[in-house]
Amino acid sequence: MTEESILGTVVVDIILFGLLAITAVEIARLRSLFGVVALSGVFSLLSAGLFVTLDAVDVAFTEAAVGAGVSTVLMLGALSLTTQRERIPSHTALLPFFVVVVTGSVLIYGTLDVPAFGDPKAPVHTHVAPEYIEGSAEVIDVPNVVTSVLASYRGFDTLGETVVIFTAGVAVIAMLGSGLRRRKNGQQK
């Protein structure tokens, strides 16, 4: 990679992070819940853009479809069943701010030991990953390494993930199905 293209990546990165930060601050500030939900969709879409610059194309399109699409639809559904405005909170936000600053400082202190961003010699890149990349071509014969790890090497994990989603679906139906039916019966009486 040439010096120029690295500089280009950094500039795109910083612009995307700036837009993400503005969106996140507006989410915290805005009182209209409809606006907050719309901005959360924007946040997901921008983060999908960031994932593309970080070479995670599979993650980017999942985030764009599931994060920006499905979650926004779910939240709009919840808004239509509840309320659209947030009340002004009675207590001050000083203590939360203090907690957040302390947590953030500790996390930043933790990153000081982390290998530099993009370092090819970081331990995470030298141990297991090369075997998966080589094996994907020879053993699985699927060019997309993420697909071959997800569906073949770690296929049972993906099955477990499906079980989690099934459980969540059952939980939602158990909570909302009976409640909505009860409300309908109440209206008929």
């Binding site: 690295i6 970080l54 993009g118 370092d119 995470v124 071509a137 997309n144 390494v145 993420v146």
Partner: peptide, 14 residues
């Protein structure tokens, strides 16, 4: 995802 990035590398599609 930041931790998975290798500078000069491309998306993991062979």
């Amino acid at each position: 995802i930041s931790m998975g990035k290798v500078s000069g590398g491309t998306a993991p599609i062979l």
